[in-house]
């Protein structure tokens, strides 16, 4: 890399928004999409699966075991396997990351529901809540803190994992690492790292804010 400075600011300005798919802004955008959709899908799937596991406890262990195995699969291997099914699109990254999110969120939903003290659940029954109403008005709201804690982990890990997709051509900001490495040029690498970290910090901050707003009833 010779006498090159670590960061060449003019490169950042020139490549910020060129309108091409490899501009920093476009990469950021696709990174956000590929990081957040899996968390969203993961949450939508984890709710019914978590509810079922909390309701029928025998389901919980097998579900968690399967999810842990999925979580242990190296992401690059899964992306490559997915290529055969979904091709080179964003789905190749979104589908595996959804499973990773699920692996974090199902236990979070189950823990959230089972963390509700018996006396609270029993008093809801005794007050005359129907089972559905009890779920919606009492149990799910009370599970929110634990689910949100899981959501924070899932979101940050999803943001970091997207970059790996760059190896199959769909990595959002991860493209900058490959680009910089191939050209022996540090600026894109630094931009990629900083942008990823900022994105993660921002997303986490928003979730913390959401937690504050959604659960004013928690001991500070």
């Amino acid at each position: 890399m010779g006498d090159e400075p670590l960061v060449r600011w003019d490169w950042i300005w020139r490549n910020w928004d060129t309108g091409r798919p490899d501009s920093i802004l476009a990469l950021l955008e696709s990174h956000v999409v590929m990081a957040f959709l899996p968390v969203l899908f993961g949450l939508l799937l984890a709710l019914p699966l978590g509810l079922a596991s909390a309701r029928w406890r025998w389901l919980y262990q097998p579900t968690v075991s399967v999810m842990n195995v999925v979580y242990s699969l190296p992401s690059i291997a899964v992306f490559i396997v997915m290529l055969a099914i979904t091709g080179l699109g964003q789905a190749t990254v979104i589908v595996p990351l959804t499973f990773y999110s699920l692996a974090i969120l199902i236990p979070a939903v189950v823990d959230g529901l089972t963390s509700i003290p018996d006396h609270v659940r029993n008093s809801a029954v005794a007050m005359g809540f129907t089972p559905l109403r009890r779920l919606v008005r009492v149990e799910l709201p009370l599970a929110v803190p634990v689910v949100l804690a899981g959501l924070r982990v899932a979101t940050v890990s999803s943001i970091s994992l997207v970059s790996v997709g760059a190896l199959i051509g769909q990595g959002g900001l991860g493209y900058l690492f490959i680009d910089g490495w191939q050209r022996q040029f540090t600026t894109p690498i630094v931009v990629g790292i900083v942008a990823t970290v900022l994105l993660a910090v921002l997303a986490d901050g928003l979730l913390v804010l959401a937690q504050r707003l959604l659960t004013p009833w928690r001991r500070a």
């Binding site: 006396h119 609270v120 008093s123 809801a124 005794a126 009370l142 929110v144």
Partner: peptide, 17 residues
């Protein structure tokens, strides 16, 4: 039936939220 019967539980069982 339950809505017509008051119930007080140990530790109060209030809804924290």
């Amino acid at each position: 039936l339950r809505r017509g019967i008051g119930y007080v539980i140990q530790q109060a069982g209030l809804f924290p939220h």
